[in-house]
Design a protein around this nucleic acid. Sequence first.
DNA 1: TTTAGCACTCATCTCTTACGAGTGCCAACA
DNA 2: TGTTGGCACTCGTAAGAGATGAGTGCTAAA
Lengths: 348, 348
Amino acid sequence: MRFDDRKKRILSAIVETYIRTGEPVGSKTLSEFPGICVSPATVRNEMAALFEMGFLEQPHTSAGRIPSHLGYRAYIDGLMRVKPLTEDEKDGIDALFNIGDPDPDKLLADAAEALAEYTGCATVAMTTTPHYVTVEHIDIVPADESTVVLLVIASNGVVKSKVCRLGFRVNTGIADFFRKFANDRFCGHTLKDISAEFVTAVSVQLGDYSNVFNPLIVGIYELCKEVYDGQYYLGGREKLLTYNEYSDRALEIMKLISKRDELGPVIGNNPSGVTVFIGKENSLSQLMGSSLLVARFNIGENDCGTIGLIGPVRMDYSRLIPHLEYFAEKLGTLLSITYQRKTGDENG
Amino acid sequence: MRFDDRKKRILSAIVETYIRTGEPVGSKTLSEFPGICVSPATVRNEMAALFEMGFLEQPHTSAGRIPSHLGYRAYIDGLMRVKPLTEDEKDGIDALFNIGDPDPDKLLADAAEALAEYTGCATVAMTTTPHYVTVEHIDIVPADESTVVLLVIASNGVVKSKVCRLGFRVNTGIADFFRKFANDRFCGHTLKDISAEFVTAVSVQLGDYSNVFNPLIVGIYELCKEVYDGQYYLGGREKLLTYNEYSDRALEIMKLISKRDELGPVIGNNPSGVTVFIGKENSLSQLMGSSLLVARFNIGENDCGTIGLIGPVRMDYSRLIPHLEYFAEKLGTLLSITYQRKTGDENG
DNA sequence: TTTAGCACTCATCTCTTACGAGTGCCAACA
DNA sequence: TGTTGGCACTCGTAAGAGATGAGTGCTAAA
């Protein structure tokens, strides 16, 4: 049985109509399509063939057909005509990012929310820190008698700070001593290296002072870990409630989305560009009724994070894929400006 | 018609049974209650009286009765026997806070999430900054050639930092100059005072350098505003999906909860202790199908924030009210340790 | 290969009926 | 006077019976 041109046109029409209406598509509806100028009976023959080939499913005998996962896959991989973004749409996305001097953390959190609002899907955004990123500088700023602000600056430009309340008075002498000590021990090491064992070993070197300075050492460890682990943001999970696909599964999927442990690995390991997981293609059972679109974004040449879209299998791929692609690109560009230094000159 | 003891017992039984089962309560069920040793017919007479008095509602003629808002109100204000927390329950809540050296921001975010998990309700946590809080110290730490970390330390102990990328090389001389300038102009002023106009006026004083340093001045403004505005955290909105009360209104209420503009004023202005808004008592129309429990938490003597619980009107008040109370108290204690300085000695 | 015709399937809607939980009211009783 | 048993009544809910109609598969003719 050949997957000929007319079958392709019919499959496309079924996918697109079903995405639009959510109703199984029948032969009569299809025969009225501009691209398909044959009678309902002929369409039925073709539909029977497409069913045999595994591209269609039938909710029940007397209903029309809906696309199977294979059907969606064939549509996305070959049949779909991607709708390139209009200038207005590009402007719309650009406007979402129209903020002066963005804080990188907030930028991503806001981006996740904005993308959800824009697409009507739930979103996940995640940053990843390359293994070669090192500690570049550690600083300690006395803020108050016994309070200091600890800063860790990583070689990829990320800065994290933490307020530490200590049990003793911190004067500039103590601060200077600890600053030098911490920079000597931590700078140049990759974030990946800075494990609990590493920190214990460093702490031991403080000898009698190790107890006193321990909160600061632990603080540095926590900050390094925070930078290395990256961030995980959610947006618009409640959007899923608008689809009746989720009427009885909304809680389950909303819970899943907030679990970084589960979703992180799935969205984190993908090639560049937009990757699509349709329904049962997902490895997580809770996601099998959903589709997941994932796009990486880069700072310069370096993979820097992923942003993902979660929605019903019946989502408008031809619109969402290019939108997500443009969005991720834009996000990367903006982050590149923020972290303009250190991209590519030390990855090796 | 007297609201006598038996009527009170019957109302209590109706409220408690309805909270437990979600079904309208009938006279037969009530007559079997240990505290109510009369026949169903007598109970019916009493129920008719309670209905007359406005304490009960009737979904339809042939159903049992459910409490009206007045009924819940009477129950909560006088009839309810608050279940004091067991030691185990106290330990359970204590365990939620069992984290060494908490970051105040994270503490509250985690608390909101933990409370939602613990109570099965959606939660909102909000910090408020008293009007008398001033800027205590501003610091600028060069992190990289053209990158600095800006720190604002407020008199209530809150520290916020922000990374600023500048268009020029920052050496220690420049940093020292700006640090002195900023501290001279901002320190001692209340956060409330630091408006856009104030910042413009300060900027003007930099004369020719005002353009150069503007990102830093704006950064200080943003940080001050961030401290003054406080934080707004949500937790467990998806918990509401477990109640069929929300089966068709979940989206609406979840959206509302995320709007600080709308919910902030409602939960922010309440006396100390736990305040309860039952259904229609709420000023926001979207909340009229829900109950809202709000508790303030304090640092020392000073009002510092509020934590609220949102759930179906049919919620277990006798359990949740003391739990929320204890939780807020615990939260205040923990924050007091974090911000142990400056409480009460400068409010005036 | 395409198409018209036709019998068949099956979800959905509507109408009817039966059921039962719960009520209100009344008369009798302590 | 308060309490109780009895009884007719209400009304939501569940179950069953048609009727409807969208859509199919198959066959035979063009």
